[in-house]
């Protein structure tokens, strides 16, 4: 198991490096100059100094390693320092956002909680809905429950989130007036009243994400259950007189969860990137919103950082999925 994990890790690190290079180069070669919007009265030498101060004068490779060092060491340390209050923040330059002139890391730290709440709850509820539906659908294959469940999950992942979100706004905030259509990040939860307001405003974005995730996961769950229900060990379990409940919920479910757990792990980063759209619909000012706004105004350091964070999330969760699969299913370790 240890060598297996090491081998996966040995592949993950170069992947991250190559992705960082791609992200860096793509935006580095981007047309557009950060000094272009400065007044034309600035003399050329001063403009050169400004460019040098922004770190633009040096060769690409130097800038890449400098960026990588800031990205991989300086910014995380600053983020940890800001979150815990420890005095570990190193001195030296940081990645500055071109739109706000403040360190990118600080903005990201402000944005992460909103994204985590919305995305996390959306995914959690999605899983909680999907697993029972998948189990029942598979156990009663071709029953009316299965037929409806399969159809709804097909609709659920065919209808794009930007349409479900808009329909939810239309029904629940325009017509019924139950929930606000915009997410108010300034809301502080201090008492029961503000807590309820927080719940009301988070319901719709979470519901949109939960619906989408549930429809995908329930299909996997159903397929995986169906694969297992016809296996010999199920017949054995029944033959030795176990209760049907035990057979399905202990023997079959546990085995069916193996691929589903890895699918869930792999899906987490996609949910983050997919939440870009949900955040736009409900005006949640999370990480995705920061990315979109940065793209609108060509704030490339911000775009690079957020894209890189997404890339790290993908590689990390792929690694977690691989390792989890190895732990749950010893057959695939081959070591």
């Amino acid at each position: 198991m240890f060598t297996y994990t090491l081998r996966r890790l040995a592949f993950a690190v170069p992947t991250v490096l190559v992705i960082s290079l791609i992200v860096f180069l793509m935006l580095d070669m981007a047309p557009g100059d950060p000094t272009a919007s400065l007044p034309l009265t600035i003399p050329p030498e001063v403009r050169e100094q400004i460019r040098a101060a922004l770190g633009l004068g040096e060769p690409v490779i130097v800038r890449y390693f400098r960026w990588l060092q800031m990205m991989a060491v300086t910014e995380p340390l600053h983020m940890i320092a800001a979150a815990t209050g420890w005095d570990i923040a190193p001195a030296g330059p940081r990645i500055l956002s071109w739109q706000t002139r403040s360190p990118v890391g600080d903005i990201i730290i402000q944005r992460i909680p909103q994204t985590l709440w919305v995305v996390g709850l959306g995914y959690l509820f999605g899983i909680l809905i999907a697993v029972p539906i998948g189990v029942i659908s598979a156990y009663k294959q071709y029953s009316w429950f299965d037929q409806i469940g399969t159809f709804v999950s097909m609709v659920g992942f065919s209808v794009p989130t930007f349409f479900t979100g808009v329909v939810f706004i239309l029904i629940f905030s325009v017509w019924l007036g139950w929930f606000p259509s915009m997410y108010d990040t300034t809301l502080r939860v201090t008492d029961w009243d503000s807590f309820m307001r927080q719940v009301r405003q988070i319901v719709m974005p979470v519901a949109v994400l939960a619906l989408f995730n549930a429809s995908q996961i329930s299909r996997f769950m159903r397929a995986s259950m169906l694969d297992n229900l016809n296996q010999d060990y199920v017949r054995t379990a029944r033959a030795k007189g176990l209760r049907e409940q035990t057979v399905v919920l202990v023997h079959v479910l546990r085995n069916s969860m193996i691929p589903v757990v890895t699918v869930i792990a792999i899906g987490i980063p996609t949910v983050f990137t997919g939440a870009i759209i949900t955040e736009q619909i409900f005006r949640v000012n999370g990480l995705g919103d920061a990315l979109i706004r940065a793209i609108y105004v060509s704030d490339w350091p911000m775009v690079q950082t957020i894209t890189f964070i997404f890339a790290i999330l993908i590689v990390l969760f792929n690694l977690i999925a691989d390792v989890l699969y190895g732990i749950l299913d010893p057959r695939i370790r081959y070591d």
Binding site: T15, I19, I22, M26, L27, A30, P31, P269, T273, G274, I276, L291, I292, I295, Y296, S298, V303, I306, T307, F310, A311, L313, I314, V315, N318
Partner: peptide, 15 residues
């Protein structure tokens, strides 16, 4: 497969 596709698409289009 390890690239964050939606952000990259957005960047590609914007660039």
């Amino acid at each position: 497969l390890a690239l964050p596709l939606l952000p990259l698409l957005l960047i590609l289009v914007a660039l």
